[in-house]
């Protein structure tokens, strides 16, 4: 029984992080109508930026390094758009897809070049988890859940209470119509990159805190985020949140039935299943 509860907790933990990834991915899809396959590299670079600022020669403590690390992630996200995707705005989807894949390779290999392919950690001692009702939870994991909740509430308030956020949703619904209304779509698109980068950076850092850093961490998590996005309906940010949690739970509960070695296959399985049942999810959103 305890094992079940533990799996549920682990599932929610993983799900929170996937949700952060998926929300950013789906936001960019909504606004620009393409899947950014380099989104995983924003996740990975976010985590490495923090590693970089905490290591030599800076040696900043985590709370101080956090903000500049996220700012660098935002810069990377905006740079991606400015130098790769913006010049291709009117190109067809296949061109965009290949550009995004190429960018993903470039950034992944760039990180490998700088930091090597080996696993790294932020160097915190592994503390024993607190035991509550037979479930073990570490302080890091409490931080993951709290940070995710803060991010989600922040995104909710931004999208539903501010004019900029509402304009972003409008652009995501119908770019041409938003223009007709005098909404500054360029501004909204840039802001979408900022939000997607922050969510990716925060998620990447949380993930690295809980596990480790590795240049390939973005890619595998992109697949999870992609599955979550499909599950929630592409372009739907709250669907992505829910999808992320479902994927996290499915993976961790699935381990009770099948070997943990196949854990990553579960997200793939859900993705393939979604594409088989609802291929329309990829092509467009229902009104």
């Amino acid at each position: 029984m305890d094992f079940l509860f533990q799996s549920i907790l682990n599932g929610i933990l993983a799900g929170c992080i996937y949700a952060l990834f998926a929300m950013g991915l789906t936001l960019i899809y909504g606004v620009l109508n393409f899947v950014n396959f380099a989104h995983g590299e924003l996740i990975m670079w976010g985590a490495y930026f923090l590693y970089f600022l905490m290591g030599k020669p800076f040696g900043f403590p985590l709370p101080i390094a956090l903000i500049p690390a996220l700012l660098l992630t935002i810069l990377l996200g905006i740079g991606m758009d400015r130098f790769v995707f913006k010049p291709l705005r009117t190109a067809n989807r296949l061109t965009l897809l290949i550009a995004a894949l190429g960018l993903s390779f470039l950034l992944r290999n760039g990180a490998q070049f700088l930091w090597g392919a080996e696993l790294r950690t932020y160097g915190f001692e592994i503390k024993r988890g607190l035991r509550i009702l037979g479930i073990s939870i570490t302080l890091n994991q409490v931080a993951i859940i709290l940070t995710s909740i803060v991010c989600i509430v922040f995104v909710y308030l931004l999208f539903h209470r501010t004019r900029l956020g509402k304009s972003m949703r409008a652009v995501s619904d119908n770019l041409e119509l938003a223009r007709v209304m005098g909404i500054d779509s360029k501004h909204a698109i840039q802001f979408a990159w900022v939000i997607a980068s922050v969510l990716a950076g925060v998620g990447g850092i949380l993930l690295a805190l809980d596990t480790n850093l590795q240049p390939g961490m973005g890619l595998i998590n992109l697949v999870k985020a992609f599955a979550a996005t499909l599950l929630g309906g592409v372009g739907n940010i709250w669907g992505a949140l829910l999808g992320g949690i479902v994927i996290g739970l499915a993976e961790n509960l699935g381990v009770l039935v099948i070997s943990p070695g196949y854990k990553d296959a579960i997200a793939f399985g859900i993705m393939v299943l979604m594409l088989l049942i609802r291929p329309s999810a990829l092509l467009g959103r229902q009104e």
């Binding site: 004019r163 509402k166 304009s167 949703r169 409008a170 995501s172 619904d173 119908n174 041409e176 119509l177 938003a178 007709v180 209304m181 005098g182 909404i183 739907n236 959103r285 009104e287």
Partner: peptide, 28 residues
């Protein structure tokens, strides 16, 4: 200008749609 067909934001509320129409007014 009101384009033909898809001329509202379906995922925004009625109120938010109207607010978007007020974008050029700037001041909340």
């Amino acid at each position: 200008y009101i384009p033909q067909g898809k001329n509202i934001f379906p995922s925004l509320t009625v109120r938010e749609n109207l607010e978007m129409g007020g974008t050029p007014l700037h001041d909340s």
